[in-house]
């Protein structure tokens, strides 16, 4: 493959990494973060409640009465779930960023060797 073609391929990939992959991952991470916060707020609210408080859960258009213990456990489980999702997403972002850095180095190198080629 000629230098130009390789450079072009690397640049395309570089841009895709930046504009699509990383941007998507970051967006997902933000969504998860706001979910985490909402659930944390609910958990805090549950902790303030008396044990005999009535809790309802919205199922479709109706409110269904739910046990406090069950609801608390539900939220706790959801929090755990979201936290592990966040961790996975963060690893992914890290991974992508590393790939991105590598591509950048590759482009710089290709550029340098092309400059050398045109100079000679």
């Amino acid at each position: 493959m000629s230098l130009e073609a390789r450079l072009e391929a690397a640049t395309t990939e570089y841009q895709k990494l930046q504009k699509v992959d990383i941007a998507n991952a970051v967006e997902n991470l933000q969504k998860l973060d706001s979910q985490l916060q909402e659930n944390e707020i609910v958990q805090k609210e549950f902790n303030l409640l008396k044990d005999d408080s009535n809790i309802y859960k919205l199922v479709g258009p109706v409110l269904v009465k739910q046990d406090k213990a069950e609801a608390t456990e539900n939220v706790a489980r959801r929090l755990e779930h979201i936290q592990s999702d966040i961790k996975r997403m963060e690893d992914q972002v890290k991974d992508l960023t590393e790939k991105f850095e590598k591509k950048k180095v590759e482009i710089v190198q290709l550029n340098a060797s092309r400059a050398q080629q045109t100079a000679s």
Partner: peptide, 21 residues
């Protein structure tokens, strides 16, 4: 009153508690 506390959960509260909420 019944208050929406988020993520599909609703909690019954007295008016005063709800105002505080």
């Amino acid at each position: 009153v019944i208050v929406d506390v988020g993520t599909g959960y609703y909690v019954e509260k007295t008016s005063d508690d709800a105002v505080k909420f």
